[in-house]
Simulated assay, not measured.
Amino acid sequence: MVTIRDIAELSGVSTATVSRILNKKGGASDATISKVNAIVKKLGYQPNFVARTLSEQSSDLVALLVPGLGNPYFADLSERIEQAADRRGLHIYLCNSRDERDKVDYYLRFMEGIRVRGAIISSLFVDEEDLTKLNNQGIFTLTMDRACFSHPYSALYVDHRAGGYKATRYLIRQGSCSHLMFISGPEQEKSSEDRYAGYLKAITEAGAKPVAKLTTSFSLAGGYQAAKGFLEDHPGSVDGIFCSDDILAIGAMRACTDLGIRIPRDMRVFGYDDIELAEYSVPRLSTVNQLPEDIGEQIMDLFESTVSSKGKPQKRSIEPHLVIRDSSQTRGA
């Protein structure tokens, strides 16, 4: 591996001079600069990113911690954030935690080790103590969605209670549902709990019946198995299903089909996230959209504002909206 010392020896200058030239800080004649750059090009030298970041105490690398890319929602969100970062000359280091605390710990240590510019975090397993440790080291943070909102640092919050309320109210009023079931993600998953709170509020206001709350993994199989098991054991007890994400809803719709339950004639179904697949499922899935078209720009604007203000807390909330498709139509539709 070619080092700065090799470049210095071949150029006949000090390693400090080579470093200044590579970092475009001058301090050498035009002839020396041209000579060093020519040797760098000839040898194919690549600067050590970590060492340069530590020496300069700055970075164009932004850590993005997400629970996993198997869920299309987080894959789409990550892509939008990366595109917005690219337009600002920044680079995203994607940290896929798989919702495992050990992996979260690894990535938090990594962020500290290479002095990233800051961190954008969506994780159930990052708490206020973790955020305080990062911010105290000058690694400013922005949490979003699934992370806690009440901490004293920057946060982007989606009002999932409002989203759950709107979807359930639609099923009751326009879908003519009176016996509704909620299929949730894992226990203590904050966004699911908020959506469930909105569901209960709409049901209570309308005098409808909350038949069951089923807890499962965020997966097609999870939605399928939860819905199929309950509907087999309690035939005719449910006329509407609200799921805390689209993947669960698509799994639940498949279960209904396998049981001979027609959607939307016999059962109305509502999802959450408005992933691309929702528009192409059969029937097309009604859902809650929580991502404005410019969500990547909003996140990066909030992040950069936080960094430039040396960690001054910035708080912003987003209210989701309904996307009505075939799966929530009334019986006669």
Rank of each mutant, 00 (worst) to 15 (best):
residue 220 L to K: 06
residue 160 H to Q: 15
residue 182 F to T: 06
residue 187 E to P: 05
residue 243 C to K: 03
residue 170 Y to K: 09
residue 219 S to N: 08
residue 223 G to V: 05
residue 173 R to G: 06
residue 162 A to M: 11
residue 187 E to H: 14
residue 173 R to N: 15
residue 195 R to C: 08
residue 226 A to I: 04
residue 187 E to W: 06
residue 188 Q to L: 13
residue 193 E to S: 04
residue 168 T to M: 12
residue 161 R to D: 10
residue 171 L to R: 02
residue 150 S to L: 13
residue 204 T to R: 12
residue 173 R to E: 13
residue 225 Q to L: 03
residue 214 L to G: 01
residue 240 G to F: 08
residue 176 S to A: 14
residue 184 S to N: 05
residue 219 S to H: 08
residue 168 T to N: 11
residue 155 A to I: 09
residue 172 I to R: 07
residue 172 I to G: 04
residue 146 R to E: 13
residue 193 E to N: 09
residue 242 F to R: 14
residue 175 G to P: 01
residue 205 E to P: 11
residue 145 D to G: 07
residue 215 T to A: 08
residue 228 K to W: 04
residue 152 P to K: 09
residue 189 E to T: 14
residue 181 M to F: 07
residue 192 S to F: 04
residue 210 P to W: 03
residue 222 G to Y: 07
residue 224 Y to V: 03
residue 179 H to E: 14
residue 153 Y to D: 07
residue 160 H to A: 02
residue 196 Y to W: 05
residue 183 I to V: 08
residue 174 Q to D: 15
residue 175 G to K: 01
residue 190 K to E: 12
residue 159 D to H: 12
residue 224 Y to F: 12
residue 166 K to I: 08
residue 209 K to I: 14
residue 221 A to N: 11
residue 183 I to D: 02
residue 217 S to R: 13
residue 234 H to I: 14
residue 184 S to L: 03
residue 236 G to H: 04
residue 209 K to Q: 12
residue 227 A to Q: 01
residue 160 H to V: 07
residue 178 S to V: 01
residue 228 K to F: 00
residue 206 A to E: 10
residue 241 I to R: 02
residue 200 L to C: 14
residue 208 A to Q: 03
residue 198 G to I: 05
residue 224 Y to T: 09
residue 213 K to A: 11
residue 217 S to E: 14
residue 151 H to T: 03
residue 221 A to S: 10
residue 153 Y to E: 06
residue 156 L to P: 01
residue 163 G to I: 10
